[in-house]
């Protein structure tokens, strides 16, 4: 009896997932198909299957993108942002969840409020600020420019990351904290040796979300970075795109190439979920 019920619910789950998976991957499939079509066909045909398969667009775009050069730029920016985000906000999340200090809750509210302020209006002050701090301008170096890209990105990703870490640490039993305290562990030690290792799922979540976000970021880097050689992959792609006057096949081929690294990282990080999930499934 319970077995039958379990089967029915699995079937329902399967059908539900299959339907939604179809809807969610359609645009992606379309991207792949457009990358293999001629531009004319992309504009006219509604079919996902190209009439003539053209791989030349992909290889040509790969070469024109100078993939490895800009891959390095994108990787530096993404890695710095994500490491910064995980480091700073896991610390802060722990601080807000497990320690006490004057003005703690008000401060937290301040962080969350930042989520609700439309970012369009802060673009100009940010740029003015970066300039007066010497990050950007005619004499800027690649190092200072990238710092100017990364620091506001870290801050922008902060509230959500902070929320996730704080929530996770708060849900963890306080006995753990007290026991460690009794054993003579310092606050820093408790964070680094006990809480952080347990937070792997949150670290994975925050990393996945931000790797994708930063890798694809366009508006902010395009404002700060002015030298072609310092471009990230999306900026280089846009540049290429502009030279060609909206060739949809090239645009999609370029997008696909740009996305491959993210998808690989995504698959790698997924393991952390699979481990947790299978453990849950066996117990249930």
């Amino acid at each position: 009896m319970p077995l039958a019920r379990r089967n029915i619910s699995s079937i329902v789950a399967f059908v539900l997932l299959a339907l939604y998976a179809l809807a969610s991957c359609y645009p992606f499939l379309w991207m792949i198909s457009a990358a293999l079509k001629s531009n004319q066909e992309v504009l006219i045909s509604r079919s996902l299957i190209p009439q003539v398969l053209r791989f030349d667009i992909l290889t040509e775009t790969w070469n024109k993108l100078e993939f490895w050069t800009y891959f390095v730029n994108s990787t530096v920016i993404t890695l710095c942002s994500v490491v910064g985000i995980v480091f700073i906000y896991s610390l802060a999340g722990y601080g807000f969840a497990k320690t006490h200090f004057w003005g703690r809750d008000a401060l937290f509210l301040g962080f969350v409020a930042l989520l609700l302020i439309p970012s369009v209006t802060v673009l100009i002050p940010l740029v003015q600020l970066l300039r007066s701090l010497g990050f950007i301008g005619r004499e800027a170096t690649q190092f200072s420019t990238y710092s100017g890209v990364v620091l506001p990105i870290i801050n922008g990703a902060g509230p959500l990351a902070l929320f996730l870490f704080r929530n996770f640490f708060r849900e963890m039993p306080h006995d753990l904290h007290d026991a460690a305290r009794v054993d003579g562990c310092s606050e820093a030690g408790i964070y680094a040796r006990i809480y952080l290792p347990l937070a792997t799922p949150v670290i994975a979540t925050v990393s996945i979300l931000n790797i994708i976000g930063v890798w694809n970021a366009f508006i902010w880097p395009s404002i700060v970075i002015n030298k072609d050689a310092w471009f990230t992959l999306p900026l280089k792609l846009k540049d290429l795109d502009l030279q060609l006057v909206t060739q949809w096949n090239v645009r999609m081929a370029g997008s696909l190439i740009t996305l491959v690294p993210v998808i690989i990282v995504f698959l790698l990080l997924q393991r952390y979920y699979i481990r947790g999930l299978t453990a849950g499934a066996i117990k249930g």
């Binding site: 601080g95 497990k98 320690t99 006490h100 200090f101 902060g158």
Partner: peptide, 10 residues
């Protein structure tokens, strides 16, 4: 108030 050091960078 030493917990504030955790949130200082942020």
């Amino acid at each position: 108030n030493s917990g504030v050091l955790f949130v200082l960078p942020a």
